[in-house]
Amino acid sequence: MDRRMKLILTIVSLLVFILLLWLAESYMDPFIKRILNVAAIYVILGVSLNLINGFTGQFSLGHAGFMSLGAYASALLYMSPALKATNFFIEPIIWPLSEIQIPFFFALLVGGAIAAVAGFAVGAPCLRVGGDYLAIVTYGFAEIIRVILNNLQNITNGPLGLKGLPTYTNLYWSWGWALFTIFFIKKLVDSSYGRALKSIREDEVAAEAMGVNLFKHKTLAFVIGAFFAGIGGGLLGSLLMTIDPNSFNISLTFQIVMIVLLGGLGSITGSVVMGVSIAFLMELLRFVESPMTIFGLTIPGISGMRMLIFALILVITVIFFRRGLFGQKEFSWDWIFRSKRRNAE
């Protein structure tokens, strides 16, 4: 199978995908559209965390922190001055944030950039620690951000959060960014830089001895991962129409870590498939939280039962399928056609 054929296939499937997006955006009911939006955001978050955790091998638990920075920074930029005035009724928002309003796209970019700066700030000092210690440091960092956001009353509105945000996020924005994230990170990990990142995961000492600058490449992974986390956070804020510091807590990070682990550390395909699956499962499994009768036994609805099921899936995966659904494998046209040929024989 030659390169041109693959390129044509890729372009055709992209066009079909855009057509499907258009159909979904125009005719689907809002409930399904919302799940599809969440799915795209999960894909962005999963793939970007996979860059840090799966490809570079730096186990980070800071994703919710990066997301919250992106969500707040972009929301404060795309909200209208009037909306800000109604939100900040305890203490007015500081100038110049009270006056600024910029288009959604640029607000997202600024949000991503601020998250990226934070990514550098975490990545740089974390260079000296690895493994469990790094996980704890990054988790601590996410908590610091949460506490700061909770207390900056005249910038973030503190624990009241921001409410009534305009809904800019639609399927084009969310899936557009998801596709860009997949493209960017796939190209990155397949490049010479990607090989350097993977070599750090495989053996830090050998990587350094082969001339890989550990500082530069680890912070690179953190900066890029954090940037896309910030974008994902911004999209999520505008989708949910409300953000407060406590919605970006550790359980959100765990959801993303779960996507990466179940899909396979080091597999973008895995993160995409699991990101979409988890978005749908979250809704499909809602029934377990409603009251039900099994064999004459009536169980009252318990909220949070869904997470129990996910936890169980995670435990089973870690014990029996340690490499996740895809391991380190990736989707490719070759792979599809090879398996087809094999079936035909």
Binding site: F184, L188, S192, Y193, K198, E202, D203, A207, Q328
Partner: peptide
């Protein structure tokens, strides 16, 4: 201390990385 999960070719290619002049963005795009 090889990079066990990388191919033999990628192991060698990684060692050429230190002479790479192109930026991250030019590699991605």
């Amino acid at each position: 201390r090889l990079f066990g999960e990388l191919t033999a070719l990628d192991n060698v290619r990684t060692a050429f990385h230190l002479r790479l002049k192109s930026s991250v963005l030019s590699a991605v795009f």
